[in-house]
Every structure is written in structure tokens, then in C-alpha cells.
Design a protein around this nucleic acid. Sequence first.
RNA 1: GCGAGAGUGGCGGAAUUGGCAGACGCGCUGGACUUAGGAUCCAGUGGAGCGAUCCGUGGGGGUUCGAGUCCCUUCUCUCGCACCA
Length: 826
Amino acid sequence: MPGDYTPQSIETKWQKIWEESKLFKVEVDETKEKYYLLEMFPYPSGRIHMGHVRNYTIGDVVARYKKMKGFNVLHPMGWDAFGMPAENAAIASGVHPKKWTYENMAYMKEQLKRMGFSYDWDREIATCDPDYYQWEQRFFIEMFERGLVYRDRTFLNWCDSCKTVLANEQVEDGACWRCGTQVYLREYDQWFFRITRYAQELLDNIEALKEGWPERVLIMQRNWIGRSTGSLLRFQIEGTGDDIEVFTTRPDTLYGATFMSIAPEHPLAKTLPRGTSQEGAVKTFVDKTLKEDKFTRTSESYEKEGVFTGRYCLNPLTGFRMPIYVANFVLYDYGTGAVMAVPSHDQRDFEFAKKYGLTIIVVIQPEGEQLDADTMEAAYEGEGILVNSQQFNGMKNTEAMQGITEHLKALGRGEATINFRLRDWGISRQRYWGAPIPVVHCEKCGTVPVKKEDLPILLPEGVTLTGTGESPIAQVESFVNTTCPKCSGPAKRETDTMDTFVESSWYFIRYCSPNHRDKAFDRKEVAYWMPVDQYIGGIEHAILHLMYSRFYTMVLRDLGYVDFAEPFQRLLTQGMVIKDGAKMSKSKGNVVDPEEMINRYGADATRLFTLLAAPPEKDMDWSDQGIDGTYRFLTRLWRLAMDIRDLPGTSAISTVPASMEPVMRKTHQTIRKVTEDVDKRFRFNTAIAAMMELVNDLYKAKETVQGQDEAAVLKYAVEHLLIMLSPFVPHIADELWEAMGRQGRLFEHPWPAYDEQWAVSASATVAVQVAGKLRATIEVPKDASQTLVEEKALQDANVRRFLEGVSIRKVIYVPNKIINFIVAPG
RNA sequence: GCGAGAGUGGCGGAAUUGGCAGACGCGCUGGACUUAGGAUCCAGUGGAGCGAUCCGUGGGGGUUCGAGUCCCUUCUCUCGCACCA
């Protein structure tokens, strides 16, 4: 009896061999076609979880497969190492974030190694390393020089628990994306990346990504960018001579605009009421509204409220005195933060007008109906003919849009414009554990970027973290106090750090060329490896990380660092790991620890189960019994290989005995199936199922094997099976390969090609239907003629029984698949 | 409300181009292994029926010789966006 399958010892053995021989090390090789496979790098939280295991296993299968197909495969791994948990740990237990982070990285690296992933660890990067973030500081300065970075005082989402500002993309249902605390608005001086300058390109390029990205990710990005065409209009404020700017998609309704609504955050909400009797009321209203969280406040069902500012503006076409209201439903973030209100043709404005007794003027009459401002019960938002609109009366509203806009342009009161929902990316964080923003504030010169030769601006290490909301770096006087790069006078350093999404916006480029101290990366190396051929990660990054990375890559192109705009050619968003109907989480108590699974079943069984349980893009149900099953399969594979190894002879086939033809066919059909499933479809579950079928067949075949010729076919089959299994379960595959007496590592073995002759079976099973119902199946030679199949089908007793007493009206024959006799009575 | 996706055995899932629905795995049932079995092997396993056979892919309708797959309609669920001016 050969040794039993003991994954623990086998896996350690091969991991050591792979590591010592630097099997996974990769370099630029112009003679080979490259393939860059990237999985989203983890945050070093302490331990890997099943989501990581699934993500990285999928990636590892593809990486190993592509390598075997002859590609020069870049498959790197690193750490998204800045971030809040490190600080929270520091606040809770006093460990320095750096120590905490590096210890976690070390531990998780060992865990990843125990999974047998084929990473080139020589390319490992940690974003908290100054060798990494200094380049980001340089990019920041260069962006500053080009006006792609600016500072502005605005209202921002504030998370009280994380004590930091959040970008719009980082707010989910009004709550912090990380900790779930409700966010509210706070006014801050913030640094922004001008992502809006790239809105159109980000949108346009979506077209080119269609082939390789999931449609829903592109739709989400398109909606997030939110392009709409309309007009920018200016309304003169009575008495001040200033204008209120408004974006509208409905300039055709302008003659019906009877009041104005502005957002509570709008600067005019402060200045307009001054000196009017409404001053106090407006202040109370604004204060109250801003304290409410934005999600609740701007949800559709929320009570629409407003307050009159005491001021009016003039409708540029009718001269109508439009009272200006501050209204809680107006979004400061969208358009200009002010809306012209047309109560007759906008339901929201209608309700607001009714509530506050404001004028309603109908300007669009639907066909065959007569709207009356006094009696209408809802706004009419459809198409129709313009009325009360001076020279535009009688026109279709849709056709008048352009004319009205042009008319306004002639009056100097507006023009056609394109508006985006996308806002600039606020990157300031009042946190310690992040990359310092390389800027100083000088009383004389203002805000001045640090000189490039002074980079990196190192994060000071001796700080106390208290979680009070002030940036902890601000306490470090030796850091804060500096001299101005311009005038050399005393100045203070910026104490905000960058959003960690900045780090993850270019790490994939650094991987191509990771070990340079004197430059961010080598152009040639990057040109060779980029773009990423296949990116794999969670759907939760559909907008945030993926949009930022696309933007940042465009910026790097414009700064002259790279020659491409889109970093990720193909994207696979893998589903979540579910257990007992819910996402694994500590609070639900349904977490399965990968390390425990490795200890108990081995990495190979763990890998195999995550791949078998569901197609990669779908959510996957974790099942404790399921992994038992994959472990059983590997044990079965082990015994099969060992039994067949002990047969006489080698896998060199001289002739295929007739008795072994089915085995030979199954082997080549499996090669074809697995190749297609992995290569074209990323359907690892069906690829594994096919290999399981082969194992089942081989088990049967081995019971009756006789002589060396038959044994050779079995050995041949097992060896091919091992080659195909190696991307999925690399340890047992290498071990059995060695046990079969073969040399080398399967990672470096070419992927087998299937033999067309064997992959195509010599015969076909044809289903015989009478009147569309299955009555028999018959074996016929491959591609047999209809005459022959018909003849054979008609010999079948059951078929004949159903043809009795009826006449055949028509015969449908699909070669190798089906023959259908259409019958008529008599 | 808008957009996207999904609904198939007891469960996870197959069915790639309109052609034998339920591959593969889990679970379950029975048997073998002169003891035990959370091991292994063999057999069975969509439902009804002794059977021939009939029924069956959320519901209803349609196209077709033939529909899980295409069309219409409807229900349910998941995800994303959501007063976007």
C-alpha cells in the first residue's frame, strides 16, 4: 500500500521547493508574449479571509494556466498598507500603526504562501513604504503644477467614528463605507484632485472597455459620471446686480419659472437674507438642515421644506420676480446648487409651490388637453406645445429647447452646457496613517508645494494617537514647523494625509518595476507589462477604486509617465463568499477561517472547493460538507495515480488497444473541455467537473487493465490529468507527477493540446423523437447520413410502436444530435 | 421610481449555437468490506405510476418539428443608483 495522501507534508515540501528555486520569479523577456494577471491587493488587516482565498485562487489558476500556455506571466502581490484599522488598533492597544501593519503583512504573507499561490514575491510592495509613497508625493506636486490639484473650502462628508472626511464615493446610504456610522456635512479646507476634468474621457473610454469588463460595472461607472446635456442660465438677483447660476435640462420650460430654490450649503444662502426680515429664519433653517444627515435629507420621501430668503431674482425672459428659497431637497453637489423652479412642469416644484402658495404658470400644453394652473393637481412633465412663451408659442417643447437657449445666449444670460454628476475627488484625510500631502503653508507665499528634491516628506513616527479628530501629525512640532520652499521664511507643513485610494490608484504600475529607489518605475518595463491583461477583484470596487485608477492613469499619461490611458484590459468581478445565507462576518458568526481549512484539508482541497462551488462571478456558498467532497476527490486522485503508477511500463503509447479507445477519447475530450473552460469562459467549476468525470472513468478502466499497452494509456491519461489539474491543485499535482517518475515542475510544463482525432468521438448518440417526444436513442457513426440514421431509428421497436397507425409527414434531422419524425394521423 | 442580473431536484450548480433537462459535487437510500465506521468500494437517487408511460426549468401566453434557452406578459428575489434640476 503506497503512502496515504497527507496534504500538510506535501504542501510544505513543494512550497519550499518552489520558493528555493525561485520558480515564480519573472523578468521582462521581449521574446515572449507577456500576460499581466493582477488580483486586487489586500489590506493587511491581520489574517486572510475566504474572500481573499477565493479571489487569489481564481487568479492563481489563470496565472498558472497562462504560464503553461507559454506566456511570460507577471503575477505580483503586495499590500494596501495605509489605512484606518492600523490607527484604530493603535488607539485601542497602543501599538504603533507601523509595527501593527508590518506584523500583519508578515503573517498574511505566510498565509498566502501556504495557499501555494504563484506570486513573484520579489515584487512585493507595501504602500506605506516611503519608497512607494514618495512617488505619489511627486505626482501630487506635478499635478499641482498643472492645476490638477487644488484646495477649496467646502462642505464634506464627515464620519464621526473614523474622525475623517469621506469622498462621495465612500458614502453608502448616508453612512461611512468602512464603519457604517451616519455621516454629516462639515465645512473644511480640503485638497481635491480634478477628476472632473477627465469626466468626458472616463465616459468615452467605457466604450472600449465593453469587451473585457462586466457590463454592470460599466453601467455603474456611466451613471456615476452622470453626463447630461442642458443649459447654464443666469438669473439676476434683484437689488444686488449679482447672478444666480442654474443648470437645467429643460430650458423649454423657462417661461414658466416662477421661483428659485437654492441648496442650504449655497454661499448665497448666507449672503442673500442679510438685511431682510428673513435673516433669522434662514439661519435657523440652514443650521437645522445641515445637521441632518444628507442621505435622509435628500431621500425622495423626505418632507420637502424651504424658507424664503427675502430676495428675488428676475426671470430673464419674462421679467417675473422669482422669490428665492432655500430648500432642503436641492443638492449642492449637483449642477450649480441652485434650481429654477417650474411648478407647472416639475412635480417637486409643484408640491413646493402648493405648500408655500407660489405662482404656477403653464407653458406646455399636452395634445388634446387643456391644463389650467389653478385646477391642475400634478405637474405635467411630458411633451407638448409651448404657450405663454412669447415668440416660442406654438412650437413643440422639444424643438424649442435649442431656440430658447440661443435666445438666452444672445441676451448674455446663458448657454448650452454639459453637466456631470461626477465631483472632484477630495483626497484630504485628517488621519495619521497615510502619505503626507507634500505642501507647506507660508504666511507670505500662501500654499506652496514642497521642492521635489526634498521628497519624500516622511511620516513622523513619534506620535500619540488619541482619536480626537485633529490630525495627529499636527502635534509633531518638528514636522509641522518648516521653512517656505519659496521665500525660506517660517512656514507650516500641511498635516492632512492622502486618501488611501490614491495609493491603490497606481500600485499596478509600480509592480511592473518595483525596486527602483531613484524613480517611480522604469518606462520600458512598464511599457512591456502594462496594461493589466486580467484584473480580478470584488464588485464592491466597481466605482471607487476602478474609477480612481482609470483617472490616475490618465493623469500619469498627461504628466508624461506612461503612454496609455486605460490600466485594465479585462476585469473579472468575483462574487462574495456566503455562508448560511449571509456574507461571512464576525457579527454574524459565520466566518470560516482559511487557515483552519488549510490545516484540516490542505490548501489544494480549499482551493478546489472555492473553484468548484460556483462560477467565479457569482456568489459562492461555503459548505463544510462541500470541502469534504473535494478532499475526498483528491484522496481518490491520489490512490488512482498510485495504483496506475505501479502498473508495468511507462506512459509512452505505442498502440492504443481497442479496449482503451474510450479512455483515450475521454482524455482528449477532457483536455479540450478544460482548455476551453479555463481559457475562454473562466468556468473553473465545469472544468473541474470534467476532470472528475475523467477520474471516475479511469477508476473503472483500471479495474480491468491488462498488459503494458493498456497500462500505457492509463498512465498517459493520468499524466495529462495531473498537468491539467496543476493550476487548480498545484501541490498534489507536482507530488504525483514526481511519483509517476516524471521530471520538473508542472508550472513549467507546457499545457497539453488535444488531439482532434481523439477528442472527436467516432460515433454519436442520436435522440429519436416521434412528434417531439423522445422514444429512443441510437448509436450511429459520427456524421452519419440522414438515410442511415432514419433507417436505424425505424428499426427501434419503441419508435415503431409510436409510428403505428400514423403517417410520417416530415423528418427533421440534426446530425449527431437528434432525429424527429413529425407525424399526422392515418 | 430608474438601471442591471437572477429564478432549474432536498442543496451548490450543469446544459457554450434553439436539439436527450438535471453533468459534476453535496446530501440521502440500499448493499459490500465475516466486528465497528464521520474510512473505502458498488448500486440507486426530479415527481407520479407495478408498468408502458405521463408530468416537470417562478406563473400565464406565443413563435417553432422542437424552448431552461427566443418573443410578449406577469410575479418574486438580489445588486446598483435614487428629489440629478
